[in-house]
Nucleic acid binder design. Structure first.
Lengths: 149, 149
DNA sequence: CTCGATATGTCAAAGTCCTGACATCGCCAT
DNA sequence: ATGGCGATGTCAGGACTTTGACATATCGAG
């Protein structure tokens, strides 16, 4: 096997490095969430609900970057484990606002700490200014890509 | 549906924005590659082979952030379409060095231009210094996450 | 030389996620 | 009021990827 012979042009492309960082983060999160019996989408769902109770399934799906169908099974799973509750009937339209149970809040507390430790590790050695610059630059990239053409 | 009522804390987390940017890039690449009948992993395979002919299946898998099995089916598909060739017997060990055919190079040329246009669009408005800073910061994040503990 | 460790390619099975489609419900202009 | 339009929740169906396992081939230590 040729192990890192020479750095080719691909590794210097913004898109490539972006994907690489995203995969590394995903794997690291997966590793720390596994002991808590949570997948990344499940954690994302809990975190979103912790910060904004009453979000609907579609809202959660958008926030976690998955489809409504995927979030729906996540939600049903968490509901079955007693971490999330949803009303049987829709108070308005068809939206079923979800909320954390006490057990859900406890689970979220542990998971959030684990994920925050990963973020801290990832950003180690970065000055607040560089970290803010990273956020701003990424936000700019997102805005640029969101434009239709 | 609650449409962007107020910006919550989640959207300011580095990991969240990183994921968001990666998804936006993935979708944009998907959109421009679809007319060429190429998926993102397929394009990644072609691009890697274009820059480093003779890469093995396992090398390509690592470079495209997928498993060997997934890259194997990608490779077989591209082989069936006449874009990639692999020797029937392994010249050394079990590695089957892959290479682009002329048709593969042609296909790659068009795909590469399309993807480069997406990267250009994504990085629009960024000074070379900010772009380099983004690359450096992301590289730092990747290094930090690669450490074992 | 021999044996263990590592890497590769490949097969089978499972899981995950997305695409497509449908019925329902609220909103807005006609 | 009413009919189009968009949004939501839900139900299969299928595509894609990963996990697990196995045989083979190289390399290095004993």
């Amino acid at each position: 096997m040729e192990q890192q012979d020479t750095v080719g042009p691909v590794e210097n492309a913004v898109g490539y490095v972006l994907k690489e960082a995203a995969v590394a983060l995903r794997n690291a999160m997966d590793a720390v969430l596994r002991p808590l019996h949570l997948t990344v989408p499940q954690y994302a769902c809990l975190e979103l609900l912790g910060q904004r109770p009453g979000l609907s399934n579609a809202d959660l799906a958008r926030g976690a970057f998955v489809t409504r169908q995927s979030m729906n099974v996540v939600l049903h799973g968490l509901e079955g484990r007693g971490l999330v509750t949803r009303p049987a009937t829709a108070p308005r339209g068809r939206e079923l606002p979800a909320a954390l149970t006490q057990a859900g809040r406890d689970h979220l507390h542990a998971a959030s700490a684990a994920v925050r430790s990963i973020e801290k590790k990832m950003c180690a050695g970065l000055t607040p200014a560089r970290q803010q610059a990273l956020l701003d630059t990424l936000a700019s990239c997102i805005r640029n890509l969101a434009d239709n053409p």
